[in-house]
Design a protein around this nucleic acid. Structure first.
Lengths: 92, 92
DNA sequence: AGCGTCCAATGCTGTTTCGGTATCGCGCTC
DNA sequence: GAGCGCGATACCGAAACAGCATTGGACGCT
């Protein structure tokens, strides 16, 4: 489980399509597909239903989506906060 | 920035000693030292003061420690929650 | 002052992980 | 049954990673 995997998951959940999510993340479809499979494997649950149109969140996926978003937001906050404290690179 | 790096950071912050933290994480000292350096580089701030006794948190490090703990707790919660929903591996 | 000690940091190397290309398998459409 | 769109898989080269050995710096001892 890595932050990258969470970002991949959120993107696929929002796009409901691995290919589109991949483009959005500047990645290709296969590694992104593997991210989702790895997550599902680690969680022991299927997060998406594979349909003909693409990927649809399953109930477990919806629950996980909330957590994933919160985690990513926390990470973002953490980075921005600490960078804000720093005299070194705060202004960019 | 990865979850592993956050775990490394918290361990070093708590042990105040890279070698001890490494043992606790079943790792060796050099990679753990590099985790901290990578974090500091990414955040643009020094998180620890290197003393003769080991590592002491700087103010930015203390702030980041709170965030890191929260993130790791969130990750833990996310995994446990979704695993709890699953019929596949919940009890194992 | 010179030497040993304890700490984190670095050079190097073998291995693992990872992303990209090409391809597959499946279900649907015409 | 040929074509299309989707995710999944096989394979390979590149990047990341952990571990070993070593360095460099600060202090204590004699």
């Amino acid at each position: 489980m890595s932050i990258t995997h969470l970002q991949s998951f959120v993107a696929v959940a929002e796009e409901r399509h691995v290919g589109r999510a991949a483009r959005r993340l500047h990645l290709t479809q296969p590694p992104l597909s593997r991210h989702i499979l790895a997550l599902e494997d680690e969680l022991g649950t299927r997060l998406f239903e594979r349909t003909r149109q693409g990927m649809r969140l399953l109930p477990a996926g919806e629950v996980f989506l909330h957590h994933a978003r919160r985690i990513l937001a926390e990470v973002d906050t953490a980075v921005l906060t600490v960078r804000g404290l720093s005299p070194r690179d705060a202004g960019g």
